[in-house]
Nucleic acid binder design. Structure first.
Lengths: 342, 342
DNA sequence: TTGAAAGCGCTACCAC
DNA sequence: GTGGTAGCGCTTTCAA
């Protein structure tokens, strides 16, 4: 027999039949579109309720060519991802704005550029409506790839090259400048830097802000080493800096993780922090405020960044003209790991 | 005119036309199904290549009722998520097995049980083919919800209640037992515990393993406090333990994050670690090996857990009979934060 | 305001 | 082996 199978999910046709209207009307009512008499609308909504109807995403995606999902592809080595304090709150911020409007996030982890390209290509193929571009790199291939793929995108900060991708910007510089000004005011003259891979725009920018602030203050160029955002890397870089003939009295790190392992390296050498060596991190990780001494650092609001990025994406997909958004800059968090030089 | 629009994505019909065959055959060829002459198959593949054709996910999902996506919903407070060392490698493990077969992961963050239920309900509605159930809780509502939703699932460890959900199990106990045996062998008699929220099965199990091992060794019950997996919580719990009339000489924590902030709390009180207080964490976070002293801890292979979970899911969706999988147990990592009691 | 019907781009079934 | 055709469950015209 052709009757309603016992436990099959109700379809829009079932709703239409029960409400005594056509499928088309049900569709209009469900999507809050105009042109449905309110009595009819009520009847339809009642039928939806009675049947426990929920529209199929797949069907909706096919006929409207909107998936209701957004993509985030993360290209990083596992160790770098492991302790990254940025993405959890960033994603939470995204979710806070997209979940209420029925959208969801698709996540991809990739380990090299080839996989990355493939991931975007697959996502562009009817899996997502748009993607967030994070961790901008030098000569980043993604803006042009995404343009080619015609995949809407929102980027975190502005890519170096021109592109039509709207950007949600958050300036790290004020935070690191304030940190350095504080160190300089304390009397430090040899302030070193442990940076992230300079391939990343943000790592490069933090390093140049450091260099420029030193120079603006009339100090000689400081020493620095390019590290990799891992704990091991931070310790190694710190050792290298401390082994130099004229070791620094303060070190600015591009991440809290590296700063903390750098602090441990200093302790291992019998140096006290901040007595013998001042340390400034970057990120304000969950742990940082609870260390001994608590870590002086620079904070970036990843949650707000997520919210703003998601809002920009929603506006973009809605066909709006999206202009760049500027978020409050990174801020300096003064805690206990900085003091006058010995 | 009705011709091919200049830049529209090619469809399966375009491929069929170019190869001079029917859509059905193209579908068979694309999905490696039998019944296509190899010469024909070659011709089809060539046409696919020429046109740069990629099958639409939405269309495939609708007609096959398989989305090719898997869901992961994380219900936790933002602070707990922020520094969680488990999910990044777990997700990387999932990706390693699902990405090569064209599947992707959909992520949802929710903050309470109501949102959680809604998230699963939405995912069940044609957004994913199955979900991973993590962070099992006491009287967890999810097994029955998922059964009701008829949403295939794989859980990490076995829910307390009976359920047909296949589980991928990893036993924490051996790791914590070995850790305690080590402490006991060192001469410790007052070994305290800072646990996670006991609502979580894994937190509860770690606590009972601690209690049982003490008792099995003939020691009196130790003191413990229920904390929340945050750095602040770990420090607070440690202070409470240390303020007691007979403070412990060693503390076993349910997470590295709590252990590290506990260590800082000890330092703040002028206690040396491990001289005055021995500390054992749980997780082996990225930072832990690079602390001073390096943290003795218990390690769980989250990446392997992800791989195994994904494999179980693939088998489950493939219609196979999936039996529980047992992974190697958590292992004890002896480093520098443990020593004989003062 | 409403109904009927034509797709969206695939998969799957049934003939030949 | 292969071609035709009927859906999958929606959205979106176009008439009425």
């Amino acid at each position: 027999m052709k009757g309603r199978r016992v436990s099959a999910k109700p379809t829009i046709s079932d709703v239409a039949a029960r409400a005594g209207v056509s499928k088309g009307l049900v569709s209009l009512a469900l999507n809050d579109k105009p042109g449905v008499a309110s009595a009819t609308r009520l009847r339809i909504l009642q039928a939806v309720e009675d049947l426990g109807f929920r529209a199929s995403h797949a069907a909706r995606a096919l006929s409207s060519s909107k998936t209701g999902t957004l993509g985030l592809v993360l290209a990083r080595r596992p160790e770098m991802l492991r302790a990254d304090p940025f993405f959890p709150p960033f994603i939470a911020g995204l979710e806070q704005v997209i979940a209420p409007i029925g959208m969801a996030l698709m996540l991809r982890f990739v380990s090299d550029v080839r996989e990355e390209k493939q991931a975007y290509t697959e996502l562009a193929n009817g899996r997502v409506d748009g993607v967030f571009v994070t961790d901008l790199r030098q000569a980043d291939p993604r803006p042009s790839l995404l343009a080619e793929l015609r995949l809407p995108a929102v980027s975190l900060n502005r890519p170096s090259e021109d592109s039509r991708i709207p950007a949600v910007c958050l300036d790290d510089l004020p935070g690191v400048r304030t940190a350095l000004d504080h160190l300089i005011a304390l009397g430090h003259r040899r302030i070193a830097h442990v940076g992230g891979p300079q391939e990343y725009l943000h790592a490069d920018r933090r390093r140049s802000a450091w260099a420029e602030t030193l120079s603006a203050a009339g100090l000689p160029p400081g020493s620095w080493v390019e590290s990799d955002f891992t704990a091991a890397g931070g310790a190694r870089a710190t050792a290298e800096l401390l082994d130099a003939p004229h070791p620094p009295t303060a070190i600015l790190y591009a991440s809290d993780l590296m700063a903390v392992s750098g602090m441990a390296e200093a302790h291992r050498r019998g140096l006290s922090v901040p007595g013998d060596l001042s340390i400034v991190g970057f990120d304000d990780a969950e742990l940082s405020a609870h260390l001994h001494p608590p870590l002086t650092t620079v904070r970036t609001d990843a949650f707000a960044w997520g919210q703003a990025s998601a809002s920009a994406m929603v506006a973009l997909l809605g066909g709006g003209v999206v202009t760049d958004v500027q978020l409050p800059s990174a801020s300096f968090i003064l805690r206990g790991s900085t003091a006058p030089p010995p």
